[in-house]
């Protein structure tokens, strides 16, 4: 399972970088979305994959019975998803407004501030 996940994560990173290298701003944002998903999956994978063992503690116990999944990695991924959601919502608003101002979905039209 880890090997499959590693390939998926690598593929996502590659796809994200490819999208970000395009000139279209919309594709740039799609690339960022993919990148954030790739990073989240990476954390999920490196923390160790345990199937069918949620880290729930039955009433009366203080530690979970047997082997269970790592709750910290899940919490981290959840937080990262929420943050990614907020940041990307902003990015979408930004490209929308940038499109209104610049009237082009093309990075090459946005070189004024680099001169």
């Amino acid at each position: 399972m880890e090997v499959v996940m590693a390939i998926v994560v690598g593929g996502l990173y590659a796809a994200a970088i490819y999208m970000m290298l395009r000139r279209s701003i919309v594709k740039l944002v799609i690339g960022l979305v993919l990148l954030s998903n790739a990073a989240n999956l990476l954390i999920f994978t490196v923390a160790g994959m345990t199937s069918g063992a949620p880290p729930l503690i039955s009433p009366g116990d203080t530690v979970p019975e047997g082997v269970s999944a790592d709750p910290l990695a899940q919490a981290v991924v959840l937080t990262a998803i929420v943050i990614g959601f907020g940041v990307l919502a902003f990015a979408v608003v930004l490209i929308h407004r940038a499109y209104e101002v610049v009237q082009a979905d093309d990075m090459d039209q946005m070189k004024d501030t680099d001169r």
Binding site: L28, S36, N40, I43, A91, R97, M110, T113
Partner: peptide, 23 residues
């Protein structure tokens, strides 16, 4: 707007690299 797009993209990229490193 133009400045912000560059700022946002590169900073988000670095955040994702940071997140990868944390993972």
């Amino acid at each position: 707007m133009e400045g912000a797009i560059k700022y946002v993209t590169l900073n988000l990229l670095s955040s994702m690299i940071f997140l990868t490193a944390i993972g």
